[in-house]
Computed example of a mutant assay.
Amino acid sequence: MSLRTRPHPFTRAEHPVATEFGIVTAALVGVYLWRELVGELLPTVFGSPPVPGGLLVAGLVNGGVLLAGLAVFVGAYAALRGIDIGLRLPTAADLPVAALAMLTPVLLVALTKLAGLATGVPYGSLTKTSVAADAPVLPVLSVAALGLVLGVPALVLVCQVLVQGSFTAVVDADAAVALTTLMTGFVMVSSTGRLATVPDPGRLVGAVVLALSLAVALYASDRIDRDRLRYLGYVPVLVFGAIVVLSGVVAIESVAGGLYAATQLAVLGVAAYAYDRSGSILVPALAYAGLLLANRIVVVVFEAGIRGW
């Protein structure tokens, strides 16, 4: 058995997608660590909010610092990698894809709500959010506005610039859209099932494990000349993929829950498609804003006072 069937080791030129996956995963780890740093430092510097109203101010400060640092990090990453961020206004030719980006989340949320009505599943039980029936209007609107102002830019920076921009450098546009949808669908969905502004830590650990397993498998494929041993290198990757698929299926408890999960993935896919077709970060932002607004409207307008979890 030869252990050196090729004169060179695993390189980016040989496996560009796998290498790019590792680079993107490392960058996402950096995003997560920045969020953790902000969460640790700001309370130490400013202390805890002394009054209930201070929670909103604290959220604005915390989110603002997080978003500013994220913009600097992603901007530097894009400059280093030669990624076009897309800081341009959409044109008239982009109106169809902009309409698609705006309408898709609204229609899917409405469909999920209808399925929930038919099967007795409150929409708030899916989003893990609720609003009291007598809740003051101003705080509710303020929280919704804060989520839009901070959440939408963060999602665009991470999903489109960092992830999609990276994959676009090594594959064609359609493949980059598919890879972006799959990767962000895995790491950017929180434990509550909603889109997260930064990678979910548990999913991020999974992405790191997958990147390492894939690297080992490809390295073994390149360096070992016996088919049986080469194939064994792919076993961890296949097992990981099976676990992810099965755990996702098991987590779906209802038709509405399945539609809700599909909505998150669909919005990520539409955002990636819209970014590719328009070249503007404003168009995918419409998809994320539409989803956040639709979620909030359903819970506040149609389910105030209901808590289903």
Rank of each mutant, 00 (worst) to 15 (best):
G75L: 01
L282N: 04
S166P: 07
A144I: 15
S125L: 07
L33R: 08
L259D: 08
V65N: 10
D84K: 07
T5D: 11
A98C: 07
G241T: 05
R230W: 03
V239Y: 13
R230F: 07
G124R: 12
G63I: 08
F46N: 13
Y288S: 04
G30P: 10
D276L: 11
R6Y: 14
I23F: 03
G124P: 12
P96T: 07
V244R: 05
V24T: 02
V158T: 15
P199D: 08
V143M: 12
S48Q: 13
A285N: 05
A211L: 01
R4H: 12
L95I: 12
L204S: 07
G258I: 04
L259V: 14
N62G: 05
V149Y: 10
A92N: 10
V170F: 01
R194K: 15
A266S: 11
L204C: 09
V72T: 01
A27Q: 13
S278H: 09
G53C: 00
E20Y: 00
L291K: 04
A78C: 09
Q164G: 13
V97P: 01
T25Q: 02
E14Y: 03
A271P: 08
R4V: 11
T168F: 12
F46S: 10
L268W: 09
G75Q: 02
D276P: 03
A217Y: 01
V31Y: 09
A178H: 02
Y234Q: 02
L146N: 00
D225G: 15
V189K: 08
L103I: 13
P50W: 02
H8A: 12
V74Y: 03
M188P: 03
L291S: 00
R6L: 15
M102E: 05
V170K: 00
V65I: 13
A271K: 10
Q164D: 11
L229M: 14
S254I: 08
T181F: 04
L67T: 14
S213N: 07
H8K: 05
V38Y: 05
R194E: 09
T127S: 10
V249A: 14
V171Y: 08
A58L: 04
G86V: 06
A272M: 00
A271C: 11
G59R: 05
M102I: 10
L103H: 11
V267I: 10
A78M: 01
D200L: 11
V17Y: 00
A304Y: 06
Y219F: 11
R194S: 13
A173F: 02
K113G: 01
V31F: 14
R296A: 11
E36Q: 11
L60Q: 11
P153M: 06
V97R: 00
T197M: 12
A262Y: 09
L33N: 10
L150P: 06
L293A: 02
A256K: 03
G59I: 07
D84E: 14
A266W: 09
S254Y: 15
G30S: 09
G257Y: 03
V209C: 01
A18L: 12
L146K: 03
A304L: 08
L155E: 15
G86I: 03
S190D: 15
F186I: 04
V29C: 01
L107A: 15
I243T: 05
P199K: 02
L67Y: 08
A169D: 06
A262T: 15
R88I: 08
V45S: 07
L111I: 08
L195D: 01
A93E: 06
I306Y: 02
T127E: 07
V283Q: 04
R307W: 14
L148C: 05
L108P: 06
V300K: 09
A207L: 03
